[in-house]
């Protein structure tokens, strides 16, 4: 039986990788994938503590997070298509119309 610390370490590692991806990439698709990685890290955390304490709240919450992540990707891809349509690129640093 693997101790819960190792699952926490795994989830922290995935979360930091996703954070690194968001900080370094400029493509919207990499943004979406990094957000997926971070949400998966949160899910691993919730499921690990659900197993640790013998309580199902973490698993049900993780299901909700999964559903919301799917919806988030759908809306994110809609936004990305509009970005590509209007700016001809999926580079987030080019959409500067609302900036001063």
């Amino acid at each position: 039986m693997v101790a819960v610390q190792f699952y926490l370490l795994l989830s922290a590692a995935i979360f930091c990788i996703g954070l690194f991806g968001i900080l370094t990439r400029r493509n919207v698709l990499f943004f979406l994938m990094s957000v997926e990685l971070m949400l998966n890290a949160a899910n691993i955390n919730l499921v690990a503590f659900s197993f640790q304490y013998g309580n199902l709240t973490g698993q049900v919450f993780s299901l909700f997070i999964t559903a919301l992540a799917a919806a988030e990707v759908a809306v994110g891809i809609g936004i990305m298509l509009v970005l590509y349509r209007n700016f001809g690129d999926v580079d987030v640093t080019k959409a500067t119309t609302l900036r001063w």
Binding site: L9, A12, F15, C16, I17, L23, T24
Partner: peptide, 12 residues
């Protein structure tokens, strides 16, 4: 960015 991510991982 790498330093930020590694520092966060170290704290966690």
């Amino acid at each position: 960015s790498g330093l930020v991510a590694v520092a966060l991982f170290a704290v966690l």
